[in-house]
């Protein structure tokens, strides 16, 4: 029975699923990486995603262009990021608690707006599958990598972009310094709070796009709490990836691969108890975390607010 799993078409199908499933995780965890590298832990990603998902959906539902919907999500994400920054950077509240507050805020507000502005579950026409000419014709790889909607491509494009920003720009250098030793950065005239506001806005925008990738990309529907805790997994993936963009990519892909695998195992009626199949991603996560427990890159000032001492 397991033979079925190893036919070319099944493997291509699994990898195709994996690449697509990783999309929201990538956006959200890359955004969270910016925040954590600058020393701010944002547990409110899921709430921002819900707000992004809702606004993108609502704008498209009202008949606007998909890209306008995406921009709406980004704008809302930036606002949510600013709110988080205000509470944890300016007001210096405990970052974990304020993150949970932000999550509940996003969860509640998106539900409330959904109830008042839309009222029932509706569908929209979201980003369509966009096969890239020529590349998508490559056997196997073409389908796996080049036969997705625009947001999927954008998610993967964000990996090198994020890496470049963090490692090759002056902003990135400031982010890394502020996350590790804010006092040192401050004495060199780097505005610690300014950098942290910036990363919160970047993170908020990316989290909102992650939400939009669900509501106008992968599912084309909005439902209350539709992220189902995906944002929290994205936060875990940042730890999993040791705060590196490549690690985050690996984590997102691995997590999605195991999810894709379990769906395929069940769909092909391969005799594995469905309970085991459903557990696979979590077992895998624990195993990998156990082996990647090194936290060399962990920003030393993570989750600590900064106040200039006299």
């Amino acid at each position: 029975m397991f033979d079925e799993l190893f036919t070319i078409s099944t493997l291509v199908g699994i990898l195709h699923s994996c690449v697509r499933l990783a999309t929201p995780y990538l956006f959200a965890s890359l955004g969270e990486t910016f925040g954590q590298r600058s020393g701010v832990l944002n547990l409110g990603v899921d709430g921002i995603m819900l707000m992004g998902a809702f606004f993108a959906f609502y704008v498209v539902f009202e008949g606007h262009n998909l890209w306008v919907g995406l921009l709406a999500a980004i704008a809302v994400g930036i606002l949510m990021g600013l709110l988080k920054a205000f509470v944890s950077v300016t007001m210096q509240s405990l970052q974990g608690i304020s993150g949970i507050g932000l999550y509940l805020f996003g969860l509640g507000l998106s539900s409330l707006l959904f109830k008042t502005l839309i009222g029932s579950v509706e569908g929209v026409s979201g980003f369509r599958q966009l096969a890239i000419p020529f590349l998508s014709d490559i056997p196997g790889i073409g389908h796996i990598l080049f036969n997705h909607n625009a947001l999927v491509y954008l998610a993967y494009l964000m990996v090198p972009v994020s890496w470049f920003v963090i490692n090759r720009t002056t902003l990135g250098l400031k982010i890394r310094a502020v996350g590790h030793n804010p006092e040192a950065a401050d004495t060199l005239g780097v505005s610690v709070n300014g950098v942290r506001y910036t990363t919160m806005m970047i993170g908020g925008a990316l989290a909102a796009v992650a939400g939009a990738s669900l509501s106008i990309g992968l599912q084309n529907v909005f439902q209350e709490n539709m992220t189902n805790g995906l944002g929290f997994i994205a936060v875990a993936l940042v730890y999993f990836g040791s705060w590196r963009t490549v690690g985050v990519l690996g984590g997102s892909l691995l997590f999605s691969l195991v999810n894709a695998l379990q769906l395929w195992v069940q769909a092909l009626a391969i005799p594995v108890p469905s309970e085991i199949a459903v557990m696979m991603p979590y077992i895998m996560t624990i195993v990998v975390l156990a082996f990647t427990a090194r936290q060399i890159q962990k920003p030393a000032a993570l989750a600590r607010s900064y106040e200039r001492g006299e």
């Binding site: 929201p24 992968l218 539709m226 189902n228 395929w264 009626a269 557990m279």
Partner: peptide, 27 residues
Amino acid sequence: AQVNVSYTGSFSDTTLAAEAAHVHIQA
């Protein structure tokens, strides 16, 4: 006829359910 049943392990995981639909269609 072949009936393929897959469980997502959740009542509310719309993302995984959507992907399950993709998988069934591809299968």
